[in-house]
Design a protein around this nucleic acid. Sequence first.
RNA 1: GGGCCUGUAGCUCAAUUGGUUAGAGCAGAGCGCUCAUAACGCUUUGGUUGGGGGUUCGAGUCCCUCCGGGCCUACCA
Length: 570
Amino acid sequence: MSRYLITSALPYINGIKHLGNLVGSQLPSDVTARYLRARGHEVMYICATDEHGTPAEIAAAKAGKPVAEYCAEMWAVQKDLAEGFGLSFDHFGRSSSERNRRLTQHFAKQLAEAGLIREVEEKMIYSPTDGRFLPDRYVEGTCPNCGYDSARGDQCENCTKQLDPTDLIEPRSAISGATDLEVRETKHLFLRQSAMAKQLEAWIDTKADWPILTTSIAKKWLRDGDGLQDRGITRDLDWGIPVQKGDAPWPGMEGKVFYVWFDAPIEYIGATAEWADAHELDDAAWQRWWRTDLGAEDVTYLQFMGKDNVPFHTLSFPATILGSGEPWKLVDYIKSFNYLNYQGGQFSTSKGRGVFQDQALAILPADYWRWWLMSNVPETSDSEFTWEMFQAGVNKDLADVLGNFVSRVTKFCRSKFGEAVPEGGAYGPAEEALIAELTTRVAAYQAHMDAYELRKSAAELRAIWVAGNEYLQAAAPWAAFKQDPDAAAATVRFALNLITLYAVLSEPFIPDFSARVRAAFGIDSQPWPEDIGAALAILEPGHAFTTPDVLFAKITDEQREGWEQQFAGA
RNA sequence: GGGCCUGUAGCUCAAUUGGUUAGAGCAGAGCGCUCAUAACGCUUUGGUUGGGGGUUCGAGUCCCUCCGGGCCUACCA
C-alpha cells in the first residue's frame, strides 16, 4: 500500500464551467483517485475553487453582489456540480479560506527572507471611472499595427502583435468603456524565478516519464528568450489575500493583494488543511501529506490540469515550494491535457456555445459524460466533442455492450431460474479460458491505469465487457437449457459473477453503474479482484438479486438533434 | 515573428521508442443467434502512414524540405 496525494486544477469561480474544464482535470483525477483507492492505497484527493482576481470582481459586479457573497454562492454551485458528476474529492476547498491566507502570507515571508522577492516600481493603467487598475488585457483600443479596433492591451487578436497597453490608439476600459485612463506608478513584488531557473530545469530534467506536453511547455518557458522571467505576485485589487510578511505588515505594500496565481496553487495545501479542520483533526493530519519532515516522504503527489496551467505548476509553484527553504512536498507527476473542442470550434462561455456542467447533468446521468469524456480524453492532441460521436459512443459502449449484457443475463436468469444465483452444473474449459483472458486483460488495464493512460485504460475496460458477450454467445445458455438445464445454470452463475466483476473494475469510470449493480445484488463493498478466478466465485448459488431496470437508455436521434439545436449558441 | 505539438482506414485512435505482413473501436458488407435495450457473436471490405527527398540491412518512427491542423508566447485565469 502506498500513499497518493492527488490535486485537480482549481476551477475559477466566475461562473458555471463547461465540459472542457471537467475533461482536463477533474474527471481524470477522479478516475485515478477512485482507481488507487480501489487498489487499497491511501489517497488524499483535493480540489477547490480559485476565487481571487479581476474576473471574479467583474463577475460579482455583473451579478450585482458583493464579491465575497458571489464567491460563496458560486462555490456552493460548483461543489454541487462536482458531486453531481461523482467527483470524489476528500475536500473541496476555497482559495479565499483562512488557511490559504495564512499559508500564502507565510510562503511570501519565507521567500522574502530567502532573498527571492524583489520590489519593482511599475507604471500601470488606472481607470478612475472603474476605480481600479486595469490588467493589460482589460484595456482595449485600436491596434497601432493593423488598425483593428478591438485590440487588447496585451496582444492584438487580429494581427497577433504583442502590445503594451500604452501602445493602443484611443484606449478604453474593457469593463466600462471609460476613456479617461491614466498611467499611475505602483509598487509590486516579483518572485525571482530567474534566480531559480537552473534548479528548476535540473529538477524537470529528472522527470523523463512526464507527458511531453508537460515538459515541453516547461522547457519552452525556461529557455525562451532571456530564460525564465521574474513574475509579479501582487496586484492592486480589493479582493484577494492582503500582502503581508507572515503575520507582519509589509511596508509599502498596504492595500495590495497577492496575485491569484501565487495563492491558487498554495490552496492545494490550504484545502488539505481545511480538510483536517472539517474533520476536527490536528495539523499533523494534513502535514503528513505535505511536509516531508512530518511524514510525507513516502507520498506520491500527482497533479492533473489542462495545458494552460502547466507553466504555473512546473515553474511558479515549484519555485514557491523550493524557494521557501522548507521541506514541502514537490509534485512527482504532472498529467496535462489538451483541449476539448465543441462541434468544430471552441467552447464559448460568452457565446453560450457548447455544454455547461449544469446543462449536461440536466439531460443525462453523470456516467454517460464520464465514460465518453474519459474514453476520448485529449491526451495526445486536442479532441472534439460532437453530438454524433457522443451518441454513437455512449450507445454502443454503455447501452449495447455493457448495459445489455447485464440485462440479458439477469432477465434470462429470472425467467428460467428465478431471481437468485442458480445452482447445478460445473465450470469447464470455456470458463477457464475466460478467466485466463480476463486475467491478462485486467493486468493490462491496471498497467495502463498505473501509467495514468486514461484512454488506453478505457479501451481495455471495454474489451473486458466485450469478453462477457463473447462468452455468453458461445455458451448459449438459452439453447443449452432445453437439453441440459444444469449446464445453463452454470453459465448463468458465471455470467452473474461477471456482472459483479464489471462493477468493481468499472467503478473508476462509471461509479453510478457500479453502485446500481451492487444494490441489485445486495453487495456492500467489493475488494479489487487480485485473483480473477476467485472474484468470479463470490456469488454463490442461492444468492438473491433484483433484476435491474435498463441501466443505460440509448440516446435517440430525436434527442441528439434537439440538443444540437439547444447548445448551438447565439 | 519565435517555439512546441500534430497529420496513420470514411470517423476516433494504437503501433513495445529503428525491427516480421501497420493494428483496434465505430461506420459499411455478409452470415449466425433469438437470452437481451432491433441488443449479441462470427467473418469481411477498407492504408503509397499529408507530398517530396535523404540516412539505414531495415523508417509510421530519425534528418531536410514543402503543405495542412492546433496550442503557447509570461498582466485573463
